[in-house]
C-alpha cells in the first residue's frame, strides 16, 4: 500500500468530463487528491508567468491536448513532456500524433476500469522511479523499463499462450493481460507477437527454442 498521497492535476475545459473523471478517481484510486487547472497553470508555465515549481507539487498531470494546443510548438513542450508524469486525455477523435505525445492516454470511450488501470499504471511508474535512485535523467537506463509483471506476460506471450491462458497462469484478469500487452507494445514500439519474440531473445528473456515465430 502506498504511504504517500498522489496529487493529480486535471487540465480539461469541459465540466462534464472533468467532473466525471474526478468522480472515478475519487471513488476508485486510493490516497489521491484531484485538482483542476482553474488558474491556467499550464499555459502560464509555457508563457513564462508560472515557474516549473508550481507544477512540481503535482505527481500526475492529466491533460487534454486541446487545452494546450496553442502551445504545442513551444520549445518547452518536449522537455516538459519528457520530464513529467502526464496522461493524455482525449475527449474527441484521436489524432495519432497527439496521442503519441504521452506515455499513457485516457480516451472518451474508455471504460471505468480502463481509466483506473491507466492512472494506477502511472502511479506505479512514479513509485518505481522513486524507489530506484539510479534511474535519473543523468543515468538513463539503457534497457527498456518493462515492469516485472510485463516481463512475465511477455515471456508467456512469446511462447504462444493466449491472453486467457496467461490470465489464469498469473492469477490476473484477461483485461489486465491485454493492458500489459498494450504497454509492452508501446514501450518497445513493436506491435506483433512474433517481433516481440525476437526482442525477448535479444534481451535474453527466453531461449530461441522456446518461442513461437
Amino acid at each position: 500500500m502506498r504511504d504517500r498521497l498522489t496529487n493529480i492535476l486535471i487540465v480539461e475545459k469541459s465540466d462534464l468530463i472533468f467532473k466525471g473523471l474526478e468522480q472515478i478517481i475519487n471513488n476508485r484510486i486510493l490516497k489521491c487528491i484531484v485538482k483542476r487547472d482553474t488558474n491556467n497553470l499550464i499555459n502560464g508555465y509555457f508563457n513564462g508567468g508560472i515557474t516549473e515549481c508550481s507544477l512540481c507539487k503535482y505527481d500526475i498531470l492529466i491533460i487534454n491536448p486541446q487545452a494546450i494546443i496553442s502551445e504545442l510548438d513551444h520549445p518547452k513542450v518536449n522537455v516538459f513532456l519528457s520530464n513529467s508524469n502526464i496522461i493524455g486525455l482525449f475527449s474527441s477523435f484521436v489524432d495519432r500524433n497527439s496521442s503519441l505525445l504521452f506515455n499513457n492516454n485516457i480516451y472518451i470511450n474508455d471504460t471505468e476500469d480502463q481509466i483506473v488501470d491507466t492512472i494506477n499504471n502511472e502511479i506505479n511508474q512514479i513509485d518505481k522511479t522513486n524507489s530506484n535512485p539510479k534511474n535519473t535523467i543523468e543515468n538513463i537506463n539503457l534497457e527498456e523499463q518493462l515492469s516485472k509483471r510485463e516481463v512475465e506476460v511477455l515471456k508467456l506471450l512469446v511462447r504462444g499462450y493466449t491472453a486467457k491462458e496467461i490470465a489464469s497462469k498469473l492469477f490476473i484478469s484477461t483485461h489486465t493481460v491485454v493492458t500489459h500487452r498494450k504497454n509492452i507494445s508501446k514501450k518497445l514500439n513493436i506491435k506483433s507477437t512474433s517481433a516481440m519474440a525476437i526482442y525477448a531473445v535479444t534481451a535474453k528473456l527466453v531461449n530461441i527454442d522456446d518461442i513461437l515465430i
Binding site: 518497445l188 513493436i190 506491435k191 506483433s192 517481433a195 525476437i198 526482442y199 535479444t202
Partner: peptide
C-alpha cells in the same frame, strides 16, 4: 510489421 522490423 515493417515498423516492428525497423524497431528491432
Amino acid at each position: 510489421k515493417l515498423n516492428d522490423m525497423m524497431s528491432l
